[in-house]
Amino acid sequence: MDALLTRFFPNVYWDEIWQGSLDTLWMIAGSMPFTVLIGLPLGIVLFLTGPRQLLAQPTFYGVLSFVVNVLRSIPFVILLILMIPLTETLVGTSLGVAGAIPPLVAGAAPFFARLVETALREVERGIIEATQAMGASLSQIIFRALLPEALPGLIAAVTVTAITLVSYTAMSGLIGGGGLGDLAVRYGYQRYQPDVMFITVVLLIVLVQVLQTVGDRLVVFFSRK
């Protein structure tokens, strides 16, 4: 087995691959909660203030929507570089797993917020109307009707966002972010060692497949339609 590995992957240091995989997982695990923490309320606000919704506020919605679009239109590689000073103030470094988390959150939260807005729009208006007719307050409408009804859609949004984060973590390798992307850049690209590139790509594919499968299962589990 060892002989085989050495023969086909002569340049691969397996402990580095292991460390890189862990770093990637940590970056996703570290940025996902913050993405949800920022993106979910943002998505709810976008939904509620949107056209013909409960708290329709055309001007406010227009401005917020524009800001979200701006953040989403900056390519993530550029965002990584733009964020360096802010990242250093927030976590003390722009390198490694810690340094990758602020830009990852900044890139993923607006994306997640849009997905949340879309998922909430999928909830039938009649359900909001029925809940209002029961005498529900705004927070009851949100937490007792909207979010439970949109749960499968929200889980799907988390899944898509997590997968987007996988590709973002790979990019953060470009500026010393660590993880599998970092290995692919340093060994696969700069030293031209295709075997390292191959292994990192396979691991990323496996990671994405696992995330998607788990997400799909959860969506089915929580769907009652």
Binding site: E124, G126, I127, E129, A133, P148, E149, R224, K225
Partner: peptide, 13 residues
């Protein structure tokens, strides 16, 4: 004031 609807508007969850 109770209300019922054409499309029932029950919470599917």
């Amino acid at each position: 004031v109770g209300m019922i609807f054409q499309h029932f508007n029950l919470l599917s969850s």
